[in-house]
């Protein structure tokens, strides 16, 4: 996945989601403001706002008038569910396509997946 190719506002949204998944930004906490994001990433506030709006629309953040944006109680659950749903299309399909181009057999592919998964600690 070439994240650099995604539009900037999506990258901003993804980074906030990653922090929620990791737990460094937890449910009920205040999310970064449009202005804070603009300063931190040196981007236009409108781009930052677009990223935040994306997260509000998907139910990850909620706007509290005059106070700011906050992480919703179900934020992590929502992100995980959506990413699980997108996992085959976003990650597996490009991998299989490349395996196809490289003439990898079914057994070779399964073996590789197992080995990488093990080295990354998936089975431990």
């Amino acid at each position: 996945m070439d994240e650099a190719a995604a539009p900037l506002f999506q990258q901003i949204a993804q980074l906030i989601e990653d922090s929620i998944v990791e737990g460094t930004l937890s449910e009920g906490q205040r999310a970064p403001s449009t202005n804070e994001l603009a300063v931190f990433h040196k981007i236009n506030p409108a781009t930052a706002r677009k990223g935040l709006t994306l997260l509000v629309e998907s139910g990850v953040l909620v706007k509290r008038r005059g106070v700011g944006m906050f992480v919703t109680d179900r934020a992590r659950e929502i992100i995980m569910a959506r990413r699980r749903e997108q996992f085959p299309g976003s990650y597996l399909a490009p991998m299989i396509d490349e395996a196809l181009r490289l003439d990898l057999s079914r057994a070779q592919l399964h073996d590789l997946v197992d080995r990488v998964a093990e080295s990354r600690g998936l089975y431990s």
Binding site: L15, I16, S19, I20, L25, R30, P32, L37, F40
Partner: peptide, 9 residues
């Protein structure tokens, strides 16, 4: 190291 609400550079 710069941090912003759960993200860092």
């Amino acid at each position: 190291v710069e941090e912003l609400a759960g993200s860092a550079r």
